[in-house]
Amino acid sequence: MKFVSFTIARPVLTLVCLIAAAAFISSCSNNDPVKEDTPELITKATLTFTPAGGGTPTVVTATDPDGEGYKSITVDGPIELATGKTYTLGIQLINELAASSDPEFDITSEVRQEGDEHMFFFGWTNNVFSDPSGNGNVDNRNDAVNYSGGADSKDANDLPLGLTTTWTASSAAASGTFRVLLKHQPNLKSDVSDSNTGESDLDITFTIDVK
């Protein structure tokens, strides 16, 4: 009983629609939906490690051009840092499905404006950095991460935000992974809220090489 083309249906539809439309104008209107902007979609995340005192920044990106399509995100890298050097990490999030002139394009500024309900958490392989030490605050909020280095480090309530952070690579060569987790914590963010609080807006993992 597979469907077959039923050609009578269309003229019938048109006719009945006309009759019905006379009674109810709102019905049978133009059927095409208007294209929506999709500001929640992040298609590209860029991590820029700028060395203190100048030098070429280390830049890595994660991209997901098909949004919620089947295709997984692609992550480049590794993040290559020089031993013992201090870096300022800036994170930029954009939605390339919107035109670059649209406010929806720049997700970073949105996160900045709502700093009091967002927080970046970081997780990494032990000993990749000398400062902060440890493995990050994904597993335990009180573990060290340097929310410093710029105005975007903290939110309006002086709680960590993390659009800008400071890192010192370990003095010996090391390698491992580096995870960035952005949590949306509306009415939930506090000085004890952790990486299990709220919803994930971003969760990406890069490989990292210190040499």
């Binding site: 539809l13 009945v16 019905s27 049978c28 209107s29 059927n31 939906p33 929506e36 999709t38 929640e40």
Partner: peptide, 13 residues
Amino acid sequence: LQDNNNIFGTQRI
């Protein structure tokens, strides 16, 4: 007869 409409402005596909 049915007519289903998405109201514009949800900012989501």
